[in-house]
């Protein structure tokens, strides 16, 4: 179960960290606020999930230890969330993919047989439902806005699509957790996620890119080159000045 919670926690931690890079640099003031606010919600989810992971680990580690003292190989997030922000179309498409995923995930996990996980999911579901409303609206605006916005969104889709498969990777360990009613079934998640995303894509002129390549490895700690650099930045103070109180 520790690996599963770590995967959920790291997805939110790394996505929140990426979104925080927009702080002060949004395309206009309201959107700057929305990006920061989304980052704040998602990092709040990361904190709750890391607390739960630390509790399960049971060796005295804290959520901060897990966030700031693990190396890249210890991180179990999908590679999608560590992709650079790119332009606003990249950031919002990644966000839309993750929002659709999180809404379905937390809906199922609200009924998890693990009480702590169910509580976190229930609280988080309210937030991600609102995030999805916003990212859906942006997908409409960008997909039906100007030629430039459509081109930029298509570019983002070409780059990011191959990273989405990793959200639904199966494993024996995960199968066991699904059977115990703790985790969400990745096959079920994939069906619902694809139905939503493809329904939206069908209403646009966007096309899903064709290539055989699919990102994989994040769940085993094998990431893109970007994660190591993100951790250098995020973990700097804890690494340079160990054992301090902040």
């Amino acid at each position: 179960m520790y690996n599963y919670i770590q995967n959920l926690a790291d997805n939110t931690l790394i996505l929140g960290q990426r979104l925080a890079q927009w702080c002060g640099h949004g395309p206009f003031l309201e959107e700057d606020l929305a990006l920061t606010n989304t980052s704040l919600d998602i990092l709040g989810q990361a904190q709750m999930l890391l607390n739960l992971a630390a509790e399960i680990k049971g060796d005295g580690s804290t959520a901060d230890d897990l966030a700031f003292l693990r190396d890249a190989i210890g991180f179990k997030n999908v590679i999608l969330v560590e992709q650079p922000n790119g332009d606003f179309a990249h950031t919002m498409l990644r966000q839309y993919f993750m929002d659709v995923y999180h809404v379905h995930l937390y809906t199922i996990l609200s009924g998890s047989s693990n009480q702590s996980l169910a509580e976190i999911a229930e609280k988080s579901l309210k937030e991600v439902t609102y995030h999805l409303e916003r990212s859906q609206l942006w997908m409409q605006r960008l997909a039906h806005g100007t030629k430039e916005s459509i081109d930029r969104l298509q570019n983002a889709l070409n780059e990011l699509w191959h990273y989405t498969h990793e959200l639904f990777e199966e494993s024996e360990e995960l199968d066991d957790l699904v059977e115990q009613g703790i985790a969400a079934d990745p096959i079920h998640l994939k069906i619902h996620w694809e139905a939503d995303v493809k329904e939206w894509l069908a209403s646009t002129a966007l096309t899903i890119p064709k290539t055989g390549w699919k990102a994989t490895g994040g769940l085993n700690g094998h990431h893109s080159e970007y994660l190591g650099l993100m951790l250098c930045e995020m973990q700097f103070l804890q690494r340079a000045y160990p054992d301090c109180e902040w």
Binding site: A46, D64, E233, F236
Partner: peptide
Amino acid sequence: VTRAPTLKRKLILL
């Protein structure tokens, strides 16, 4: 923000 030393500090600063 991206270098805040703990999760709590990061959340407060954001």
